[in-house]
Design a protein around this nucleic acid. Structure first.
Lengths: 208, 208
DNA sequence: CCTACCGATCGGTAGG
DNA sequence: CCTACCGATCGGTAGG
């Protein structure tokens, strides 16, 4: 065997290169997501990730030259999937808020995604963490899209008087995150979607 | 020197034993809190904690026989401090909710406590984590105390109609947690206390 | 992509 | 409480 394979070009990720390399990269990223979800980023070893992808850890480093490069690829893939799902770049308004709740409902059926997100977000609060900038951007974008949506609702008179769109947006995103932690800790006692709907309804003058 | 020192009796923690040993335990626990806050539990090493406490890691293990025993002591100490502050065991009602917001305001001035809590909670979502049971209990108790408070408000007519006390309680606790993560990630952009007050006000028919 | 290796670090123990 | 050690594991590199 030992056929021609692509170099460990950072930035190429899952696109570009030869077919075999693209498949390997996809497998490695999938394995990394699973292990990060179970053990966080710092708690994960390249050897464990590589084993699940069916190669050695030195082989993994052929495709992703450092541990951080692999994390970057995982985060990039998450963004690509979110964008592909297209729920979030519709025009601001009630639909955006509903699609955020739909995203939460989707996540409840895919606990691994929630695990990955919750663990990485908590690890990345420190400014030195390699995912810190990613989460700053992620939170800022989510908050601004949500704030715009609340402003649209306010202009229509659908927002309960006295509700500040910026604070409501901050709270809505925070509520999603906090609910995920409690839900992961005790899935049977936490109605994630119900709590989100109840919260949103309490901010509106119109039924959901 | 080498004077008589207490054995590594698990359960004794900071009470009991000789004075010197109690002081050492306190120092070690304080160092552990700081390191956990920076690196999480799994990311912390006994050597780093011991160094900050001014001993070797083998010396630390004389007082706390395993890494897990030290974590248990840290969690136990947190509960003791919360109980000593007595904010939380007043009778259910608006005062409890206000004191939770006051606790958040207190935490904003002590980021290390928030860091410790956020990191450990995220790590402990897995049922195998040594702090998992602690956080299950913690969440359940916080949620129940809050739910009781909302029920008291509802009976008085101070709760906005349509608000379910159980879901509101779940949401209030989750909001606190989620806000803490965003606040740690970008302190300048997040008004933690303002968002909590705005949220609580939106659930009430009376001014805060 | 693998084998084989490196230096560093880990939690824990032996023995005083 | 320390010195000295153990086996295990880590990310990364050399060299094919």
């Amino acid at each position: 065997m030992r056929t021609v394979t692509p170099p460990g070009d950072p930035g190429a990720e899952t696109t570009g290169g030869y077919l075999k390399g693209r498949i390997r990269r996809k497998d490695i990223i999938a394995a990394a997501r699973a292990v990060y979800a179970e053990a966080g980023y710092h708690g994960s070893s390249l050897r464990e990730i590589a084993k699940r992808a069916g190669i050695t850890h030195a082989g993994l480093l052929y495709y992703f030259p450092t541990k951080e490069a692999l994390l970057a690829a995982v985060l990039q893939r998450r963004d690509a999937e979110d964008a592909a799902r297209q729920h979030l770049d519709s025009s601001p308004g009630l639909d955006v808020l509903k699609s955020l709740i739909a995203l939460a409902a989707h996540n409840v059926r895919h606990p691994g995604i929630v695990d990955l997100y919750v663990r990485l977000a908590a690890e990345a609060v420190g400014p030195d963490h390699p995912a810190h900038t990613y989460f700053e951007r992620h939170y800022r974008e989510a908050r601004e899209l949500t704030a715009r949506s609340f402003r649209v609702l306010a202009a229509r008179g659908d927002l309960r008087p006295g509700v500040d769109p910026e604070l409501a947006a901050l709270g809505f995103i925070a509520l999603m995150d906090g609910l995920q932690v409690q839900w992961l800790t005790m899935p049977d006692e936490v109605d994630l979607v119900g709590a989100l709907e109840a919260h949103l309804q309490s901010l509106l003058t119109v039924p959901l």
